[in-house]
């Protein structure tokens, strides 16, 4: 999803030569930022997929004779209190972290969009009821909802995903519903319906493509938010203890060493920050690229 998004952006900016000529610096700057962001995201996805090709050491190898070594040529980002290589840990930890991010967005996004689509399409009392439910979920801030779920279900990867997904569901539902309402009333939809197009084909051909872009933008930002929420839960002691910890767990477990061995928590923290920052940059870029009004400009 992420690669697709950045590729799309690049493609769009290339295809608008007039803009390019008028505001060259803008494009260069914009592309510089989103290209860097794209590269970061791609690299981290690679880490999640094939960590064994990237990490120089095993992430679980604990050696008492190499604990708390500062960053250097042998251990690029130093070693932690177990004597594990921090860089390898981050590389391997990417899988878990990105999983939390993407899975919760997928679950929350798909179910939210479905709910919103139903609501917008059917209208009437279904709409009222569904939107009331969405209102209710919105009243409980994401972190609190995640905490409540974790308190009930106990810590667990899927519980974090579920909690974040539930919390983000209203946003997707609303966007989808709003899009559908605005698209539904446009003349060309009425026109295609009048020439006998089925509801489903109208939805697939016209409504969906038009609604997808804001959802994509939200999803990008959502991936970052869920990773942050996950790390917050780790901090509060509701995280998951794994042989290979995710970044949030690394950051929160290493924070006690900040004054003694800053590298243990700083690099995982930077991984989180960089990743969230990158998806946000991409989200922004997508928003600009997909906004019809900006495109006209």
């Amino acid at each position: 999803m992420r690669e697709a998004a950045s590729v799309k952006t690049a493609w769009r900016t290339k295809r608008t030569p007039t803009t390019l000529q008028r505001t060259v610096p803008k494009i260069v700057v914009a592309r510089w930022m989103s290209l860097t962001a794209g590269a970061v995201v791609l690299f981290l996805i690679a880490c999640a997929l094939v960590p064994q090709w990237i990490a120089p050491y095993s992430p679980t190898d604990m050696q008492a004779d190499r604990i708390l070594l500062p960053p250097g040529s042998a251990y690029w980002l130093g070693t932690d209190y177990f004597g594990r290589d921090v860089f390898s840990l981050i590389v391997y930890g990417a899988r878990e972290s990105l999983f939390i991010g993407f899975a919760s967005v997928l679950v929350g996004g798909v179910s939210g969009a479905l709910l919103g689509a139903l609501s917008g399409y059917l209208g009437g009392w279904v709409d009222s009821v569904l939107m009331r439910i969405v209102d209710v979920i919105m009243t409980i801030p994401g972190v609190l909802l995640a905490l409540a779920v974790a308190a009930g279900l106990g810590p667990g990867l899927w519980n974090i995903v579920l909690a974040v997904a539930i919390a983000s569901l209203p946003n997707y539902a609303r966007i989808m519903r709003g899009q559908i309402l605005s698209v539904k009333s446009r003349p060309f939809i009425t026109a295609s319906r009048s020439i006998g197009a089925s509801e489903l084909s109208v939805f697939v051909k016209h409504v969906l493509p038009n609604s997808l872009s804001p959802l994509l933008v939200m999803a990008c930002i959502g991936v970052g938010t869920s990773i942050l929420t996950g790390s917050g839960l780790s901090f509060l002691g509701l995280g998951v203890l794994k042989e290979i910890p995710d970044w949030g767990a690394l950051l929160s477990q290493g924070r006690g060493y900040l004054t003694v061995a800053w590298w243990i928590c700083t690099f995982p923290g930077m991984a989180i920050t960089l990743f969230v920052l990158s998806v946000n940059v991409i989200g922004d870029e997508l928003r600009d690229a997909l906004d019809p009004r900006k495109r006209r400009e």
Binding site: T60, M62, G237, L241, E243
Partner: peptide, 20 residues
């Protein structure tokens, strides 16, 4: 138990690797 008092969870992590 949680929270990680006196780094006891970390002992678990180390024993896990050693017994592997």
């Amino acid at each position: 138990g949680s929270p990680n008092r006196e780094k006891r969870n970390d002992i678990a992590a180390m024993i896990q690797q050693q017994l592997k």
